[in-house]
């Protein structure tokens, strides 16, 4: 019994030591995390190293730490979210922060005004960290200019979702041991996807070959200028791919007819077992969630042994713990 306790205690200590080591070695030079844009390859790698250690730590113990003890973290979500919000909440709590969730119903009429008013109000409460999701691109950056605390972008419109790109990279790295040189196919509703934009930036920075696959109506304009290879046939993009990232068809963001039907979309752009065969035999299947079975991905593929969709969620907590930690030295009175 005692031996067992000692054994666990040893494991705990070594996992924590890895975390401590990774965080000591690395200085993150930014006050906020607003996007992948502006981060260097060293910034990203440092974050991934730390998150990697956190992932191991999370698997072994569930004990709270005190990195953020006494700090207040507010999750300000103008757009509904389940996994991202709970992931940030869990990350903050595991690091000892006091976490408060504010679900703000965004009114489309007074969006801009409401946002700045809310920022000023919140700022008066002197929080330390704000986690913000907003349906308008650039809204998080705008808010960051009006408050004194650290701001983390949890998704702004169709712009960026940096922690998702980081957790995707962490998942890939833990399976493949590297990012550089891998061929990553990002497939589906690219034009509406902040996940795709952040991933393109991150993967390009770390030297992966990025491909986009979507019908022309779901590709961002001038997508060939984003440093990616563009395909309008899914099979072509999958040929020889190491990683397949499927994106959710975001019909709620479509104001006009961009794809004729989910039947046709699944026929040409849904990932099923036949199309999966085009990729490398050890290719990973990823999806930022929530998944629409039978629209962009078949159930068989979503639950396939090569699908790492659930692991992505696990890595999400680790990445967000890493992000909160590296911002800690910049907090007020740190």
């Amino acid at each position: 019994m005692i031996a067992l306790a000692a054994h666990y205690s040893h494991q705990y200590n070594s996992a924590l030591m890895n975390v401590a080591l990774a965080s000591q070695k690395f200085y993150f030079p930014h006050k906020h995390l607003l996007g992948i844009k502006g981060l260097t390859s060293a910034d990203i790698t440092g974050l991934l190293d730390l998150a990697d250690a956190e992932a191991d730590y999370n698997r072994r113990v569930t004990q709270k730490r005190d990195v953020l003890r006494g700090r207040t973290q507010i999750n300000l979500f103008f757009e509904s979210s389940t996994r991202t919000q709970s992931s940030f909440e869990l990350a903050g709590k595991r690091l000892g922060a006091d976490v408060m969730n504010m679900a703000v119903k965004s009114s489309s009429i007074e969006k801009g005004e409401t946002l700045l008013d809310t920022a000023v109000t919140l700022n008066a409460m002197r929080p330390d960290i704000l986690i913000v999701r907003h349906n308008a691109a650039g809204a998080v950056e705008l808010l960051a200019k009006k408050v004194d605390c650290a701001v983390v972008n949890a998704g702004d419109g169709e712009h960026e979702h940096p922690t998702q790109a980081l957790l995707d990279a962490l998942t890939i790295r833990r399976h493949k041991g590297r990012i550089e040189g891998l061929t990553v196919a990002i497939c589906g509703d690219v034009v509406h996807s902040r996940v795709a934009r952040s991933n393109i930036l991150l993967l390009n920075t770390l030297g992966a070959h990025v491909r986009l696959a979507a019908p022309s109506t779901l590709l961002p304009p001038a997508s060939d200028r984003l440093g990616v290879e563009v395909f309008t046939k899914l099979e072509d993009a999958l040929a020889g791919a190491d990683i397949i990232m499927m994106l959710r068809l975001q019909r709620e963001r479509m104001t006009t007819s961009l794809v004729p039907s989910t039947r046709e979309y699944f026929h040409f752009f849904g990932l099923d077992n036949d199309k999966l065969k085009k990729a490398k035999p050890d290719a990973l299947v990823m999806h930022p969630g929530p998944i629409n079975r039978g629209i962009e991905i078949s159930s068989a593929v979503a639950d396939h042994p090569r699908s790492v969709i659930r692991e992505q969620v696990e890595m999400g907590v680790a990445v967000r713990m890493a992000v909160l930690q590296v911002l800690a030295p910049h907090l007020r009175n740190a």
Binding site: P215, S216, T217, T232, K233, T256, S257, L258
Partner: peptide, 15 residues
């Protein structure tokens, strides 16, 4: 008549 729809159709059909 809807130019946006016509654009989408031309773009989609090209694939």
């Amino acid at each position: 008549a809807n130019a946006q729809l016509m654009r989408n159709i031309l773009s989609y059909a090209r694939d």
